[in-house]
Design a protein around this nucleic acid. Structure first.
Lengths: 144, 144
DNA sequence: CTATTTGGTTATCAAATGATAATAAAATGA
DNA sequence: TCATTTTATTATCATTTGATAACCAAATAG
């Protein structure tokens, strides 16, 4: 198998992943936050506490824009900043209880849809799916 | 292995896929087309010929907005519409030679980055990666 | 101790995107 | 035949997003 053919496969695969992700996450976000804001909250949820520059780097949003969106989220009481002792320039960000429960809710909905999608898969198949995920993540979809 | 644990794995995996996709496709699009327009062209490239409603459905863009963006792309001579005999309401859309070469170029850049990413993988590993892609696509990332 | 770098904010602007209403022609269904 | 549905367009508006400049304070490097 040459890389060219594998590349075809890869393109089709990533398209499918994007489509399924869209399907699973459709409508899980409250109407009063924008898609970019939801993305930020999702990132905070899985990586908290994080700094503003981490969000900026990982979500590919400029510092000024990250700062602006974070301010809105803070005003909506969905996240909060707190000082970090070692470096007084930095500030760590975490979800507030309201933000946490909002995200818990979202993840739960996504989780249920995922479960529904997996409902007819046998335990052996689940095991091989897990293996496949691990393999691809280490060999193809590794970061950096 | 329960679905809850697999779900964790799944979330991390899709995040990694999105990140790597972003990395591979970074800067492949010319500056004079917008991200949404690039997405439309990419879809046309792999599925042509397509109707406007197909683009609208698959890319999750409303008909009026799809029509608007398609008009801009047509004005830029990147794609063109042609009549379909059976149903005179419909119109099929395909890339123009200029659009085709633009997309060929983009895909080639992405392909090279992919190749670079895969360069240290042995033939046996490539085979198991292909298997893993096929498995996941059929069991997890199937459409509908 | 100064110069530079890092981390972050505020303000402002332009462009991209999303949403909606109103329209029209062709196709389909009763 | 008449009503409805499908496919698409145009116009318009509000919001979101991206980009840039100017700024500040703390940290670090020389």
């Amino acid at each position: 198998m040459d890389t060219a053919a594998l590349f075809q496969q890869f393109v089709a695969f990533t398209t499918a992943v994007h489509e399924v992700t869209h399907e699973l996450t459709k409508d899980v976000k409250p109407d009063d936050i924008t898609p970019v804001q939801y993305g930020i909250l999702e990132y905070i949820a899985v990586s908290q506490p994080v700094t503003l520059s981490q969000i900026s780097d990982c979500k590919h949003i400029s510092m000024p824009n990250t700062s602006r969106e974070l301010k809105k989220l803070t005003e909506k009481q969905l996240c909060e900043k707190f000082e970090v002792a070692e470096d007084r320039r930095k500030q760590l960000i975490r979800l507030t209880p309201a933000g946490q429960s909002m995200m818990d809710n979202a993840f739960q909905q996504i989780g249920e849809r995922f479960k529904e999608r997996m409902k007819d898969i046998s335990p052996e198949e689940l095991a091989s799916i897990e293996e496949a995920l691990i393999l691809l993540q280490s060999k193809v979809f590794y970061e950096q």
